[in-house]
């Protein structure tokens, strides 16, 4: 039997971007920090553009540790939700209309989150990527790395544990 013809690239991209947009733009706190996500295939890079309101030490100046923690936690939660929804998005089972109405899929809940501050956050744009190290039915463990100008020079990293939302088949 012939293999199913692949869908046109625009359709696939549109579906992925609609899902990602819904996840990111539906959360007020994520909007407050100004976080956006770059997507290349299934790989996400979180971007937090510099803003005065993120400053925690006006003398240096440096970003606030809490703003950095919020950025990393957002990267982890969205990254985890994204990897969890990926199959649904790809198969077309994911309901983007529901999302457009502001009905977000249930997001993972943070159990604990531990941030290492490796150097002070400069008044520049920040980037972060999450890696899901383990994602089970109930619990997940995610590591996040954040950098500013140089990818190899991390300014913060974090590990967190998350409670997964109950799946539809439960």
């Amino acid at each position: 039997m012939a293999r199913k013809r692949p869908e046109p690239v625009q359709i696939v991209k549109q579906r992925r971007d609609a899902a990602l947009n819904g996840l990111v733009h539906g959360v007020p706190y994520v909007q407050f920090l100004g976080i956006e996500f770059d997507r290349r295939g299934d790989e996400l890079t979180a971007v937090m553009p510099f803003d005065e309101k993120l400053i925690g030490n006006p003398m240096l100046p440096a970003l606030h540790g809490g703003a950095i923690a919020g950025f990393l936690e957002t990267t982890a939660v969205i990254g985890l939700a994204w990897s969890n929804l990926w199959e649904e998005i790809e198969s077309g089972r994911f309901d983007t209309d529901e999302l457009a109405l502001g009905h977000l899929p249930r997001l993972p809940k943070t159990i604990d989150f531990s941030v290492d501050y490796l150097r002070s956050g400069l008044p520049r744009d920040s980037y972060a990527r999450a890696r899901v190290n383990r994602s089970g039915r109930r619990y997940a463990s995610v590591h996040v790395e954040a950098w500013q100008d140089q990818r190899g020079k991390l300014f913060a990293q974090a590990t967190g544990h998350f409670l997964m939302p109950a799946s539809k088949d439960d």
């Binding site: 959360v27 925690g56 606030h64 540790g65 809490g66 703003a67 923690a69 919020g70 936690e73 941030v115």
Partner: peptide, 12 residues
Amino acid sequence: VHGGAVSSLMDT
């Protein structure tokens, strides 16, 4: 409230 805001408060 988002955990990040709680982080900010506790960090400060």
